[in-house]
Design a protein around this nucleic acid. Structure first.
Lengths: 205, 205
DNA sequence: CCTCAGGTTAATCAAATGATTAACTGAAAT
DNA sequence: ATTTCAGTTAATCATTTGATTAACCTGAGG
């Protein structure tokens, strides 16, 4: 997650990279510290030497994963120079690009936050960041008390994130399927703002 | 998942109920057979007596979970007497009711299918069932080759299922939050068909 | 050269965990 | 009354797994 120049990762970094990969792929409970050590090409004891415990190492990975998922979002949400549709477009582009790169990130975060909800309170309160944002105020202005703006936030996250969460169910396992899937996701950068606007327009009818 | 009349569950049923509860709540890797035995109020050895192994027991739970998630869907999708919007309304009502009852079901299925994709091929091929359905043909007719109909399938599932998957992140942990959340989900039975239609209309513009 | 501290390793520990064993119970069958 | 057998239990096993230990490099500083 925090790449070095090209090669030559420090041992501590190699462990963190390996842990990030495997934790995100399999979740906390299903990963063995030995798997991480093997992936990192280091002796198992080194993992504990650098990170004290599996939990501590996971904490590092989880914190960085949450940051990775949330970084860049706040500025889009609170840009006073963009209207609602522009923000939606910005979010769509940002997240399609991010999730094409890290498709397992959402399911990982959702699973681990469910298993241990304190992750959210500890690292950054997503709920407040969303509901206090300029984006949310614009949403409230648009919906004009006719419908909970939260509905549209769920809709946006649903159309944006859910395909990645559900891709193991919706797409095949072959490489061609993956390419086709990414193509679809790319198309969604264009369509999601249009769809969201159409949904919001159902209020003025 | 398969309730007896009122009380008096057979030992085998008690184990299966307990296993279903805990597996769905925590996933395969994070659940201990001892937890299941304790939840069922039985001796640990009985679990292996009746189900041979943790894996075999999980297989039973997973198969029933997939059935629970898919039962009733096929008839809605292939009802020749309903137009697209009616089917969407039927799906929305069906899944809001189901997921209010079993809110952890989607994240469980998505996680375990990702960990072991063969579950889908083994039990019932969801992808074929969807893409071969009358619903999908109606979707194709409506989109008229302008956009992949798969987009709208993802949109529907996204707005319908994602809120439940993300509820640990989006809602608080208190009981009041849960009631409020369920109220929102209830409202979505009404709105989702309207929103989906609005999204589909973006093609004719 | 010697030292010494950080880095690394093989070996091992202790607890957790899935599974099995052997004995016991009670009720139905003979 | 005895046998039999599914159901149940406490105890134990064997493996996995997170963590520690003690030894051993290695290279910078004296």
């Amino acid at each position: 997650m925090a790449e070095q120049e090209t090669t030559a990762l420090t041992t501590e970094e190699k462990i963190k990279e390996a842990a990030t990969k495997i934790f995100i792929e399999k979740g906390f409970s299903a990963t063995r510290t030995r798997d991480i050590a093997m992936e990192a090409g280091i002796n198992l004891a080194l993992l504990n030497y650098y990170f004290r415990s599996k939990e501590k190492l996971f904490e590092v990975v989880m914190t960085e994963s949450l940051q990775l998922f949330l970084v860049g979002l706040e500025e889009i949400l609170n840009d006073v120079n963009t209207v609602l549709k522009d923000k939606i477009a910005g979010i769509a582009i940002h997240y399609v690009d991010l999730l094409k790169k890290y498709p397992d990130l959402p399911l990982f975060i959702l699973s681990e936050v469910k298993a241990n909800p304190s992750w959210l309170e500890a690292n950054s309160n997503v709920r407040e960041m969303l509901t206090q944002s300029n984006f949310y105020k614009q949403l409230e202005a648009t919906t004009q008390k006719k419908v909970e703006p939260l509905h549209f936030l769920m809709n946006l996250l649903g159309v944006l994130v859910f395909p990645f969460v559900a891709s193991p169910v919706l797409t095949g396992t072959e490489a061609a399927d993956k390419a086709e899937f990414n193509q679809l996701m790319e198309e969604r950068k264009y369509w999601i703002p249009i769809w969201m606007e159409a949904m919001l327009k159902t209020l003025s009818a």
